[in-house]
Amino acid sequence: MTVEHALIIGGGIAGTATAMALQRGGVAATVYEAYRTTADGVGGALTLAPNGRNALRQIDADDAVAAVGIEVPGMVMQNHTGRPVGRFDGLPGLPSSLLLRRDRLYRALMDEAIGRGIRVEFGKRLTAVEDEGDKVTAHFADGSSAIGEVLVGADGIRSAVRSTLDSAAPAPRFTGLLGFGGWIPNPGLPTTGAYQHFAFGKRAFFGYFIDEREILWFSNVPAADPAEAKTASPQHWLAALRERHADDIPARDIVALLTPEDVAQPGPLEDIPTVRTWHRGRVVLVGDAAHPTSPSSGQGASQAIESSLELARALRDVPTVAGAFAAYESVRRDRVERIIARAAKINNDKAAGPLARIVRDLLMPVMMKTVMTPEKMFGDLHHHRIDFAARR
Rank of each mutant, 00 (worst) to 15 (best):
V120I: 14
F122A: 00
L241W: 11
G143Y: 08
G193W: 03
V161K: 06
V221I: 10
A171W: 02
S219F: 01
W217Y: 04
G153C: 12
Y195L: 11
S233V: 07
G176P: 12
D211E: 08
R125G: 12
F218P: 12
G115Q: 03
P234L: 14
L258C: 08
F174V: 06
A199E: 13
D211V: 05
S167Q: 09
E228Q: 13
D248N: 09
I118N: 06
V136N: 02
R125Q: 14
G193M: 02
Y208V: 09
K135I: 07
T192K: 02
R162T: 08
I254G: 01
F209P: 00
F200D: 01
G143M: 08
A138D: 03
L126Y: 13
S159I: 04
T137A: 10
W237C: 04
G201Q: 10
T127W: 00
Y195N: 04
G207R: 05
W237L: 06
F209Y: 15
H139Q: 13
I118V: 13
S219K: 01
E228Y: 01
A169Y: 04
S233P: 01
I210P: 01
I147F: 01
E228K: 11
A204S: 15
V152A: 03
Q235D: 15
S159D: 07
E121H: 12
P170S: 10
D142Y: 07
K135A: 15
L177E: 11
P187A: 03
V150E: 04
E149C: 03
R116D: 00
A168S: 12
I184A: 07
W217P: 00
G181A: 04
E214V: 11
K202C: 05
L238R: 13
T164P: 01
I114V: 15
I215Y: 03
R119V: 14
E132K: 14
F205Q: 02
G153P: 11
T191E: 12
G123P: 06
P234S: 13
Q196C: 03
L238W: 10
R244N: 08
E132R: 15
P185A: 12
V221S: 01
G123W: 11
V161S: 10
S145M: 02
G153A: 12
L241F: 07
S145F: 00
I157E: 05
D131V: 10
K202A: 12
D211I: 04
V161L: 12
W217G: 00
Q235T: 14
